[in-house]
Design a protein around this nucleic acid. Structure first.
Lengths: 341, 341
DNA sequence: TCATAATGATATAACGTTATATCATATGTC
DNA sequence: GACATATGATATAACGTTATATCATTATGA
């Protein structure tokens, strides 16, 4: 087995200088067809691939983008990643994913290692309670950074997100239109970013219609947590006839809980989700939800990163895309007995 | 905003040479406490992080591991990634994930870019129909490589996988014990690797008991596909009373299909899955399945990589871990009317 | 024909680290 | 006090590329 080939190996095999070989590999400079062929042939034979570390160090370019995310086992995020990769790969970037699992220490380690490796840019869903010094690190090292979904106040990075407040307003308003008067909000933990925005939309509608005091029920993400949360909520607030959920998985869990209690989602209690994950349409009954296209969101995110790389001094941009109301079977008018307030 | 700090910047600020600064940063050599403190203080103030490209190029070390995987939006794989990361991070490695989406071209691009960036090693679930030259590339560049789940015949890499044949034998044998005589296999596409091994186990049991000819029903992964596959299978082979599934998601979809047809999983038709994803235990009815602990599998995988890095000339290892039979409610004795063959 | 320009190839110096060898100075021994 | 040894710091040459400047040729124009 031969030694790992370097440019010099290729150059020698082709009988040219490394400078020439380099130019051929990158398609720059003035090179005759004859030598070009010789070099390419030698490179092919030797399985030569340039060493990105050396190239990047010398040229100052780096076509690798990192995507630091809080959760990868999540169909929504996976679709986002597909959108990001498709666009960036078409521009010859490599996307690699860093999984922080919403842990600020792991995130810190990941980001430090990321900076050390001097990649081209960072797409970032910040972990909950991300401290300011993690941001400072990125700023100090001038890493092109675009935050996604969760906006940070500590630093001014480009941002791509969802119109959360408006979306939940739409969802809640729809429940009010159907005649619901006791509407609760379930799912999510703590008053962090995305959830705060969504709850703001929920509260705004309640206030606008002079409805009951807001009922907000915490719960981690996931179907099982949703099941538990709904069961508890039902116990504590039997008067509630409609539930706005922080995410589809929790909403699906909530539907499951209702069914176990002998209630029919969409008839006895209405449930509306957020995201429109694949399961939402295939659940029984199919889930009403606020849909955003994660794939397109991913492409948008990638586009912003490319713009930032091309124009480092461009003013910071914030793009918030709207969600669409998808009405399926888990929302309906409340039963008569419950309408009276 | 200061320029991006390099070792020289730190050294100057601390009033020492770059050689000294370098030694302090890495904790090597003989350095007095006084200068050590000076240097560390300067580094802290400047937000200094060493440039991994330069360090790695000079030292020949690289503490970044890539994990090229075919599917990230998959709770099983996500758990594997957690196991891998936890172990490798405890040894100061950074894990980054490359998503091939089971596309050999994307995989090829990813791996080429990976090699160019000269990272430390590659954990790899090869895409279906991975061509030999992709393997050759890794071999030619001497990248420490460990394949996972899907074993390649084209090259001899270290491998960590599951005892697929044995596991499906156990599952099928259990159905036979319950009295089933017409057992089908559903899920998975094409006769590739993992699935071939599993089907081998299924067929072996049928042959051992002189049962009906094997019925193998293709279907992509996912709940929706499973629903469709089961519906079709039921149409084509109404005599089937038990189904061995290539994965839990397909199995869950199959249960859904049965329920839509007015049949009770575990009573009218038995279903057994594979993986034991989180949903399996919480489905109605809870799914019988073959469980492997993805987290531990991930740790095992990481362990093999560390061994390979430490001992590059170690003979190739293949580790196959057993799956555990988790009997829940989707398997049971067939109804009397169906027992007669 | 001579000057000028275009063409094709190359020598060389960076990029930011780390490994090695080297060099002062301080400490210890007899 | 002379010599050996330990301690602390440094100069320097790599690592594998690419950007820049340079240098022969060959082609072009008047």
């Amino acid at each position: 087995m031969a030694e790992k080939p370097k440019l010099e190996t290729v150059a020698k095999a082709a009988g040219v200088s490394t400078a020439t070989a380099s130019q051929v590999m990158r398609g720059t400079g003035r090179i005759s067809d004859k030598t070009r062929k010789k070099v390419l042939e030698a490179a092919r034979k030797l399985h030569y691939l340039p060493d990105g570390r050396a190239a990047s160090m010398r040229s100052g370019e780096n076509r690798e983008i990192g995507f630091a995310i809080h959760q990868i086992a999540n169909p929504f995020n996976a679709e986002v990643i597909s959108g990001v990769s498709d666009l960036l790969e078409s521009e010859n970037y490599l996307v690699s994913i860093l999984d922080s699992r919403d842990d600020v220490d792991r995130q810190r380690r990941n980001i430090e290692a990321f900076i050390r490796s001097s990649r081209g840019g960072l797409l970032w869903v910040p972990a909950q309670d991300t401290p300011k010094d993690t941001c400072d690190l990125l700023v100090a090292h001038k890493i092109p950074t675009v935050t996604f979904l969760r906006r940070l106040e500590a630093a001014s990075f480009d941002h791509v997100g969802i119109q959360n407040t408006e979306a939940v307003e739409t969802a809640t308003e729809h429940l009010v239109d159907l005649g619901h008067r006791h509407i609760a909000y379930i799912g999510g933990m703590a008053n962090f970013g995305v959830r705060r925005e969504r709850i703001a939309g929920y509260k705004r509608v309640l206030a606008r219609h002079n409805l009951c005091a807001p009922i907000v029920w915490d719960s981690p993400d996931g179907k099982v947590s949703g099941l538990q949360a709904m069961t508890e909520l039902r116990e504590a607030h039997p008067e509630v006839t409609a539930v706005v959920s922080n995410g589809d998985m929790v909403a699906l869990g909530a539907c499951l809980a209702l069914q176990r209690l002998g209630l029919q989602p969409g008839e006895d209690v209405s449930v509306v989700g957020f995201d429109d994950v694949q399961d939402a349409a295939f659940a029984t009954p199919p889930l009403t939800t606020m849909a955003v296209s994660p794939y397109n969101l991913g492409r948008k995110l990638a586009r912003v990163m490319l713009d930032r790389i091309r124009e480092p001094d461009m003013p910071v941009t914030v793009s918030l895309v709207p969600a669409q109301h998808v009405i399926r079977d888990t929302t309906g008018a409340p039963r008569m007995s419950a309408v009276s307030d």
